[in-house]
Amino acid sequence: MSRSRLFSRIGAGIVKELSRGQCTAFYRTSFIQRPYSARWQPQVELHPETKGHQGTISQKHRQFSSTATGSDSADGSDLNEMISVAFVDKDGEETDIKVPIGMSMLEAAHENDIELEGKDYNAIFLDQHISFLVDYNWVLCFCTGACEGSLACSTCHVIVTDMEYYNKLEDPTDEENDMLDLAFGLTETSRLGCQVIAKPELNGMRIALPAATRNFAVDGYVPKPH
């Protein structure tokens, strides 16, 4: 088939869709075909490219589920064990959340609609004349670490606000440090949220999102250049 005929077939499809009705009909069609919120879609499939790393990811899940369901826990006492962790947002406001043992802070943030990456725009601007509102629903869609916890980005960067808790964490691996190198606003108690896994000793830990650190001092930490 010639290239120009290929072109015209694709184009025709789009134009047909447009001419079928009003603009709105077009949007709605695309909405029905492509629901956005992945949370309520059938499990989003990881790209097969991630195979090599799926091991790591599922291992983490296994670790989590075995503790959380208690299926292979001898006495069942760990059942549903949770610790409490405070997430400090950019304005210094804290949200206390319960995190099951074995779950990463990235997952915990997801579960609780806390956005790790970047700042957010909650109600910065509000102008009815231009129908310009903040869509709160979006917050939950964007608290994804870009690499979904496979240590290949730095968008899940968090700061442990208390040196004492920071010291209770296992040292970051070389691979985590490689990613921390690239994190925005790195501090001495920075970690990657996908690598900080809830354990009993961490009960009461406070975690700040990078943008928040501009406004408040980290306990026991003097900022140093990196």
């Binding site: 956005y36 992945a38 989003v44 990881l46 790209h47 490219e49 991630t50 195979k51 090599g52 790393h53 869609c141 964007f142 994804t144 870009a146 690499c147 979904e148 496979s150 240590l151 290949a152 980005c153």
Partner: peptide, 14 residues
């Protein structure tokens, strides 16, 4: 050989 870096495509697709 950096498949994990490409996972961000999931987010962009959404």
């Amino acid at each position: 050989d950096h498949p994990e870096t490409k996972i961000v495509m999931n987010q962009f697709s959404k």
